[in-house]
């Protein structure tokens, strides 16, 4: 029986073919994304004058720091809530019978068809002080005064979790479907309680799904723009909007592109750090 290493060495020559199938996506990424992007990101060290002045703002400008912190806080909260809720839904979907599953899938896909723009206005209509949600809560006597559910950070979170939840559910569900249910059954037959079987067998198996969904949701959350602008009442500023303001309304492209570069490098660093903490191959699978 050959050792693992021998087997690997034996596979090597065939990797050429696999590199070949990586190529189309890689070529597109390089020529249609990285090259034009680099052309712009370079302005972060050339505009308004050559040098690292824009990057110094990371350490000196309270407004940049505040925006970064707000973005991190909201993205982290959104990711946490979306993963938690998404896990429950994906789990229930996996256990449901086929027709129930369809209905659940329909509910998950439903929000996709309502553009983020329209959804924001729908939330404003639903959650504002005179909207149906507050009216309902007051009619049931649960509250006396309308709750400030929108035009603040709460509103931004509700809106963002709503946008991100389908991504979390579908990614987790795709992962859970691939899990062999007999493993859980086996654990049960060996005397584990339902909860133990879940915690010791099922949960670890869904870890790639959780990491994949978490990465997806967190990175996407960092880039939110329309939802915070509308649901935050103008008082919740996230980094993507900050960058857009610098680029669209002012001539400070250097500042905007510096922030974009910083964001990009932080994400790359976070992915790298993640791959150190957990097994490299586990990050995306493999």
């Amino acid at each position: 029986m050959p050792s693992q290493n021998d087997a690997r060495a034996g596979w090597r020559p065939r990797h050429g073919t696999y590199w070949l199938i990586i190529l189309p996506a890689l070529a597109m990424l390089v020529f249609l994304y990285l090259v034009p992007l680099a052309d712009v990101l370079v302005t972060s060290i050339t505009d308004p004058k050559p040098g690292l002045d824009n990057y110094l703002l990371l350490f000196t400008s309270t407004s940049v720091q505040k925006t970064l912190l707000t973005t991190l806080r909201i993205a982290a909260l959104t990711t946490f809530i979306a993963l938690l809720l998404g896990y429950v839904v994906a789990y229930a979907m996996r256990a449901a019978n086929s027709s129930q599953q369809r209905l659940m899938l329909f509910c998950v896909l439903l929000p996709f068809w309502i553009s983020v723009l329209v959804r924001s206005f729908a939330w404003i209509a639903l959650l504002s002080s005179r909207g149906p949600v507050n009216a309902g809560l007051m009619a049931w006597g649960l509250i006396d005064e309308p709750l400030p559910l929108v035009r603040n950070e709460t509103g931004v979170l509700i809106g963002m979790v709503h946008v991100m939840l389908p991504y979390a559910v579908l990614t987790l569900y795709a992962n859970m479907r691939g899990i062999d249910v007999r493993l859980v059954a086996a654990a049960r037959s060996l005397g584990a309680s339902r909860f133990q079987a879940f915690r010791m067998v099922f949960l670890p198996l869904t870890r790639p799904g959780l990491i994949g969904a978490g990465t997806l949701v967190f990175i996407l959350s960092l880039g939110f723009y329309v939802t915070p602008a509308l649901l935050g009442g103008g008082k919740v500023l996230m980094i993507a909007e900050y960058v857009a303001v610098q680029i669209n309304d002012t001539l400070r492209w250097g500042l905007g592109t510096m922030l974009a570069t910083t964001l990009m490098l932080s994400v790359l660093f976070a992915l790298w750090a993640l791959s150190r903490i957990i097994d490299v191959k586990r990050l995306f699978g493999a």
């Binding site: 505040k66 925006t67 008082k235 500023l237 001539l251």
Partner: peptide, 15 residues
């Protein structure tokens, strides 16, 4: 002053 004024206003308003 538009650029600086916009920035200062946004900073003052952001929580």
């Amino acid at each position: 002053n538009a650029t600086a004024a916009r920035q200062q206003l946004i900073d003052a308003l952001s929580s």
